[in-house]
Every structure is written in C-alpha cells, then in structure tokens.
C-alpha cells in the first residue's frame, strides 16, 4: 500500500516559527495533486492543531500521513492536557492567557475549526498526560469540501 508519513516537531511558545508546519503540510499536499478544497481544509486544521501545541502545551509533534484514501493529521503534545474536552469543543471557550489573546490567538475556535475542517476528529486528553488529536479527511472522489 502506498502511503507516506512526515513528522514535524512543534515547540512551545515559538511564535516566530508557528505556522511553518502547516505551510509545509500544505506544500506537500499541493505537490501530491490533492484537490485544492481538501488542501485548504487540512491546512486550516493542521494550523489550529499546531497553534494549540505552541500556545497551550509544553511542546509536541504533528504527524502527516497520506494514503490514497485518507489524509490524517495527528497532533501529540506532552501536556498539560485538556481538563474538559467537551467544553473545549465549544466555540469561544478558551483557557488562553490575556497576553496570548492580545496577539490575536486563543479565540476558542481551535477545536471547533478542526471539527469543521475534517471528516473525523478524535480528541483524547486528560490532565497530566497531554493531548492526542487525530484529524482525518477522506480523499474519495466527489467528497470535496464546502
């Protein structure tokens, strides 16, 4: 089976490099010839996942996996984890500090945007263990984004 995997490290609080991973993801998908509406969805979702790691976690990784049927973004961080995942899924809910909000981040749209831009979203998290997010978008013909 043809599939391909890329692993990117994401550092905590590195706002200068923030967004680089999702740009790389986008570039790879474009070269693969993925439909542009799907590229847009995946790169928005990857950006949100990347920013979550930068803003909220102590660092982590973004993994991009591509198979002929599905594109998968996995975001793993090393903590501190989300206390209430259901609450975090609500639009506008955020634990970001005022400082981060001033910079235009932490609007509480991260997880809701990931959900909007994916066919399947799995979030597992608990305080102390870190957060594990899987975003999947199908590549089947005819199933193209908004």
């Amino acid at each position: 089976m043809e599939d391909i995997k890329y692993v990117f490290d994401v550092k905590k609080d590195d706002f200068v490099r923030a967004g680089e991973t999702s740009s790389k993801v986008k570039k790879i998908l474009r070269e693969l010839g993925i439909d542009s509406s799907i590229i847009r969805k995946i790169s928005i979702a990857a950006y949100e996942a990347e920013m979550n790691i930068v803003i909220h976690s102590t660092g982590g990784q973004i993994v991009l996996e591509i198979t002929p049927g599905v594109i998968r973004i996995t975001a793993n961080d090393r903590g501190p984890g989300i206390a209430d995942v259901e609450l975090a899924m609500k639009e506008g809910y955020s634990t970001a500090t005022d400082r981060v909000r001033e910079m235009g981040f932490g609007a509480g749209m991260g997880l809701p945007n990931m959900k909007r831009c994916s066919d399947r979203l799995y979030v597992t998290s608990s305080e102390g263990t870190g957060t594990h997010i899987v975003i999947e978008v199908d590549l089947k013909a005819g199933e193209q984004g908004e």
Binding site: L32, G33, I34, S36, P68
Partner: peptide
Amino acid sequence: EPKAVMRLDDDICKSIKKMEKIK
C-alpha cells in the same frame, strides 16, 4: 481556470510514490 502545475503526477498513488523517492 486553476492550473495544477505543481503536482508530481496526475495519479495520486504515483504522486505518493514519487514523493517518497524525493524524501
């Protein structure tokens, strides 16, 4: 019209193979 000139191949399976080689 869009112009997909950046893609490696028209067939996604072949694209993935090529991408793997590039990597």
